[in-house]
Design a protein around this nucleic acid. Structure first.
Lengths: 192, 192
DNA sequence: GACAAATTGAACGGCTCCGTTCACTTGAAC
DNA sequence: GTTCAAGTGAACGGAGCCGTTCAATTTGTC
């Protein structure tokens, strides 16, 4: 199973042969078929297994500090999480296979992006309850903040394989600054 | 060539056979090999051709109106451009093949995202010159705005195939509102 | 030790595809 | 009408892979 995950996420679905997976796992091809029935079945099992992992890892702690510090911490850890090469490849594979197996996309969205979006929205709502922020639509605000933190560097990662941690840090900071200029509860804000 | 583009971008590289492309184009397989040498050569030619197209289409007009209206117009047309199903599929294919052919990624980035990023930054700079905006780093500001306009719906599109134009419109509007609260030249802004 | 279940290696049929070869036809230029 | 480049259809070799079959072997359980 680990071998299957490695192979699928490193080389892609089409470029992975069950023979190779079986060999890497030190089992026979027949055993693989007996366990997972199908190549597709093996792939789906691998994806679901990895999604479980993601769910386990997506824990952000509400650390102590100012609102700005908390948001920056969230943004940094989110970006770091998404920038890991394994994660980028995983995203890639899912996206490539989603047309043939739409459930995979749902599975991944629920395990990753949607969870993170909600987690950030509820963090923002807590800040609003404390009187630190003022927003009409926390989900919308969370989307803006998360999107800014990802930025366009997202595409540089996907298409050029480059990632620049220093630029990411600056981006997250200026994103939080812009966000707070818009949503911080100090003077009157005309709502969106 | 059109047939090759259709086939590659509809079904993917691996799932496209040169035989099928030749048949769809109404030519013989040998002719395809004579023209492009290779399956990869054909794919690269198709990608470069499509990138040319993108360069041609990426024209935003500086329409008349308030800053807010101009930015919203930019955001809307950018999102509309990126949301077209062909574009989503095209992105997908490039991303999937970029490991085997890193030049493709550069080619696409130059034809698309980077051009758009610079176009938006120079739009913002013009507004700054007119005294409408105030920013330290127009490229950074442009990245934030563009990223917010794309939002996380980007992923919903990629992984669930869904797109919600009404939500996109609201997102762009609230993104521009947030952006202007941070960068509009009305009172003193402490820089990023 | 005996018995059942799982696993293994090896081979096979069937399929698809890549890329090449070759003899033949087309069509335009001169 | 000849010439020459370009295109065509058909077939081929070689490769890889999927999924199955089967007899032989291991493993674990009583």
């Amino acid at each position: 199973m680990l071998a299957a995950k490695r192979a699928f996420f490193d080389h892609g679905y089409a470029a992975t042969s069950i023979e190779a997976v079986a060999a890497a796992a030190g089992v026979s091809k027949v055993t693989v078929y007996n366990h997972f029935g199908d190549k597709r079945g093996l792939f789906i099992a691998a994806v679901e297994h990895e999604c479980e992992n993601i769910r386990g890892q997506l824990l952000f702690d509400d650390n102590q500090g100012s609102v700005r510090e908390r948001l920056i911490a969230f943004g940094q850890s989110m970006v770091a999480f998404l920038s890991r090469p394994e994660m980028i490849r995983f995203e890639q594979r899912i996206a490539a296979e989603v047309e043939l197996e739409p459930e995979l996309g749902q599975c991944f969205l629920d395990a990753g992006p949607r969870r993170m979006h909600k987690a950030l929205a509820s963090l923002l709502e807590r800040e609003q309850a404390r009187g630190k922020l003022r927003m009409d639509d926390p989900m919308q605000a969370a989307e803006h903040l998360a999107a800014m933190c990802k930025g366009l560097a997202d595409m540089e990662r996907r298409f050029a394989g480059k990632s620049d941690p220093a630029a990411a840090e600056r981006r997250v900071q200026s994103a939080v600054d812009l966000f707070l200029r818009g949503y911080e509860q100090t003077s009157a804000n005309e709502g969106a």
